[in-house]
Simulated assay, not measured.
Amino acid sequence: MSDSAIRTGVVHKRKDPRTGVKYLNNYKYLAHLGAGSYGRVKLYEASGRLYAVKVVNKVVLQRKKVTSLDPRPSAPSSLSSASALDVVLHEISVLSSLPRHPNLARLVEVIDDPACDKLYICLEHAGSPALDSLPDSLCSGAREAHLLDVVCQAAAGLALVHGQGVVHGDLKVEHLLVSSSSGRAVVKIVDFGSSFRFDGRDDRVTRSPGTPAYTAPECCTGEPYSGTKADVWALGVAVYRLRYAEFPFQSTSAADIYEEIRSSPKVEVVHPPSGGSELLTAALKRMLTPDPGLRPSAASLLDLLKGLGLSSVEEIEASYVAGVL
């Protein structure tokens, strides 16, 4: 496990007879946050801190197969299949290998009792979706400044992940959360279920990318592509969606989206109608460069923004190390 993350082999659930409050080991149940394909997410509190706990049924997920047919032109026609539990365990393995960083949702504890069907994955509560954190005025200066901060912090998180030999593989708006519990907005990258590891500098992959609308042009043919550069493109699409409230490519089916991106990969990045930040426009153009050889890495993008004096990353990292965040 990374840093202070621990693995616990015993589940102890109890209910306070006086207050009716439920507990999972030392975690106090607060609320139900939502449900996904693999299980539920609940909000817990312990020692004054909030945690998002993923609750999955090991028996059910072991029987559930994750099978997908790659719809990209020229892609292999064979089916790939794994159990849903394999996907969950893979995410735990990747999160366990990553060092602590303010722009990544930290894995705190995995509670896996052999006598219990449930698996509990405890992560720091990463906040609200990035879409919900934006100022109300669509093209306000505050919104543009916030989006630049999102780019800086997400690039910092991605640079750390890529430096550890990991590609996220499914970066999108829904996987960028914003926490403001410390009094300032901190972006955290979540959900590493589609991630993969690479050795050295060879990050080439042929697998189908994560979400079609966020797919880079070079990923649409079925040929090998750079996973790290594809992550940067996906970040660009996420920020584009946050800025313009739409995707740069409008097709609906996966096959049509891949064909649209492949045949017309150039994205028109313009100022919003009421004006906007030239720096944000420039950053978007760099992230959405069709040629991956000319597209910056996450580390290069971060260095560029730091050089322009835009990055709050050092301040956030210092606060994180000091335990303020």
Rank of each mutant, 00 (worst) to 15 (best):
P17Q: 08
T19S: 15
L301M: 14
L104S: 04
I111W: 00
A230N: 10
R243Q: 15
L104T: 00
T289S: 08
V239L: 09
E314Q: 15
G163H: 06
T289D: 03
G183M: 12
D303R: 15
A52W: 04
H168R: 06
N57K: 12
E246M: 13
A115L: 05
P290H: 08
R204L: 13
V237G: 01
R184Q: 13
K266H: 12
D231Q: 10
S133G: 01
S47F: 07
S133Q: 10
V186N: 02
R7L: 11
Y320K: 00
I121Q: 08
S4E: 13
Y240S: 12
Y120H: 13
R14M: 10
C122H: 04
V66F: 00
H162A: 03
D303E: 15
L280M: 05
T228Q: 04
S83W: 11
K64A: 13
D203H: 08
S312F: 04
F247N: 05
H125V: 04
K118P: 00
A154F: 04
P129C: 02
E45A: 13
Y23L: 11
T228R: 08
R7I: 12
S311M: 09
E218V: 12
P265C: 06
T8N: 01
R106Y: 01
A142R: 13
S4Q: 15
F196I: 11
G20S: 09
S2R: 15
I121W: 10
M1I: 14
L61H: 09
G36D: 07
H168I: 00
H12C: 01
A115D: 13
Y29F: 15
S253H: 05
Y38P: 01
A213Y: 02
A254G: 05
L119P: 02
V87H: 01
L89C: 07
A318Q: 15
K58C: 02
I261S: 05
K54Q: 12
E144M: 06
V10Y: 01
G293E: 10
V324D: 00
R7H: 12
W233G: 03
K54F: 07
S277I: 01
L301T: 06
K58A: 05
F196H: 12
P292M: 05
G163N: 06
V190T: 14
F198V: 02
D117Q: 11
V53Q: 08
A234Q: 08
V321I: 15
S251Q: 15
P224L: 09
A245P: 00
K188N: 07
G200V: 03
